[in-house]
Design a protein around this nucleic acid. Structure first.
Length: 209
DNA sequence: ACCCAGGGTCATA
DNA sequence: TATGACCATGGG
């Protein structure tokens, strides 16, 4: 069992829900190492709060988050999200809303897709959403749980039906999958040559409970 | 030099 | 509906 092997992950490191959600945008198709530097830059310039980002000069904001890559579009996405965040009454206001409605609101924002929205819901707003990433798809389709061609919503639906609907479980599950994949193929976790997306068969006695 | 990373949007068919 | 181009930095 992965949980027994690796233990609790306390996975998404952030000092606040807002910081977590900013990180979710910054880490789109980008290594977390680069995102850490971008967040550090924001903190050093005292820019890591919704009002400051919403009102900041877009080019200065872009320059600040440069290490995270795609910095121009991400600067715009951060501002759009920050305005939404304020308008919705910060994390307190957001958490009051039902999960499903909240997900739609997030998906309507330019620059926030399924995975970013679900990460925000799960790790920032305490909603039990299963986050589907590339690792999850490759590993579990290879094991034979579902077809690899299934789209995001279909894969998520599968896990929602087969897992207990509990916040801590979903939080752990996604974290463990990512850490597991990294561990057995440090250099190229998703390389196409790896039959299991970077994870060897012998390490997959683990099953869904 | 090539491939990838805790994705998403847009144009095209 | 489903591919492909594009965004851009940093590390292996």
């Amino acid at each position: 069992m992965l949980l027994a092997a690796y233990g609790a992950q306390q996975w998404w490191p952030a000092d606040s829900p807002f910081e977590m959600m900013i990180g979710a945008i910054l880490t789109q198709n980008t290594s977390w190492k680069n995102v850490e530097q971008a967040i550090l830059n924001l903190k050093e310039k005292q820019m890591l709060d919704a009002t400051t980002i919403a009102n900041s000069n877009i080019e200065q904001l872009a320059e600040t988050i440069r290490p995270s890559g795609y910095y121009r579009q991400k600067a715009e996405r951060l501002q759009l999200f920050s305005r939404f965040y304020i308008q919705q009454g910060n994390s307190t206001g957001l958490k009051k809303q039902p999960c499903k409605a909240l997900r739609k609101l997030l998906l309507n924002l330019h620059g926030i897709g399924s995975e970013t929205a679900d990460s925000m819901l799960l790790y920032g707003l305490d909603k039990p959403m299963f986050v589907v990433d590339a690792y999850t798809k490759r590993i579990f389709s290879r094991i034979g749980l579902f077809d690899k061609a299934l789209n995001y919503d279909a894969v998520q639906h599968y896990f929602h039906q087969h897992l207990i609907n509990e916040l801590s479980l979903f939080q752990e599950f996604h974290a463990l999958i990512v850490e597991h994949a990294k561990r057995f193929c440090k250099t190229r976790p998703l390389c196409k040559g790896c039959p299991l997306g970077g994870v060897c068969l012998s390490h997959h006695q683990s099953r869904l409970d």
